[in-house]
Design a binder for these strands. Structure first.
Lengths: 151, 151
DNA sequence: GGATAATCGGACAAGCACGTCCAATTAACA
DNA sequence: TGTTAATTGGACGTGCTTGTCCGATTATCC
């Protein structure tokens, strides 16, 4: 239901949020999130065009968040790479009754709306702050994933 | 977010529910739902294997629902053609902490769960019975879409 | 039994999602 | 200035989704 690309983008952004505001290289992100490196670079390019992250070339470069983790919702990330396509008019294309959806499509749109709502109300900061035995992205203990000496 | 195939399957089943329990030919369904006829036949084959509809060959044949519209939820149809893939374990594949999802994937799964719930609680009968200016599938007025003299 | 009406199944094709590879570019650092 | 480290962009490959076409099969009706 969610594309692979969305999953990868979320992993990358959550990792960057965890490391925020420090930049990380694509290699580092790929290693931490277990996303294929070459493909990840494409996904990040998309996030870059959507102005969610910024990248810096050259030695010492890398990718970093544009905003702080508490200013970024999960929905922001999802919409940046693959917007949730709400149903705004009859998919059959007939405008016999203007903007009213038939009950079937109204229900489908309601489902989409609930996803949108769920994603809108959680920020990356909240994802990271949640007390849990499973740290986001699972594979690295928080203490290890955070570079010592960071600001 | 929902595949074209799911959309088509829902249209077809809603139409069949409207005409239930009479069988309808693929041509008739395609005309009513504006789904490409040749592709629709593939979708229906899937519904057939999932035992949601039954088909009868030969002259006078066609496709009909196996159950009555009030026994079929939207979720039944969706799951028949493309099951909602709930997240049951960490997509990163690391079992460092058993069955617990990290906060990110827990949220994604919650979103999936809300879609599942929304689809589970509405039957095809309810979709058809809802008072509205937009009859399901939009293009045909109820009186016209129902074959006169049908049992 | 033959004509007709319908599904079934397989082959085929275009486009997109996912993924890889590599040369070009850019920036830091010694 | 040259080397190194990093992103960028394009070409390419593969498989899945969507879609078409058609012959084979099956059932009804005259």
């Amino acid at each position: 239901m969610f594309s692979q690309t969305v999953e990868y983008a979320l992993r990358a952004v959550v990792f960057l949020a965890d490391q925020s505001p420090e930049p990380r290289t694509t290699d580092q992100i790929a290693a931490a999130t277990l996303v294929p490196k070459a493909y990840l670079s494409k996904v990040i390019q998309g996030l870059c065009r959507a102005n969610l992250v910024q990248s810096k070339r050259g030695s010492g470069g890398g990718v970093s968040l544009v905003k702080t983790p508490d200013q970024l919702s999960i929905l922001d990330v999802v919409n940046a790479v693959e917007p949730i396509a709400r149903i705004r008019e009859c998919p059959l294309g007939l405008k016999a009754h203007g903007v009213h959806l038939c009950p079937l499509h109204q229900r489908m749109d309601n489902a989409l709306a609930s996803v949108e709502a769920a994603f809108r109300e959680t920020t990356l900061a909240e994802v990271l702050a949640e007390p849990t035995t499973s740290y986001p992205l699972c594979e690295i203990a928080p203490a290890l994933s955070r570079k010592s000496g960071t600001k």
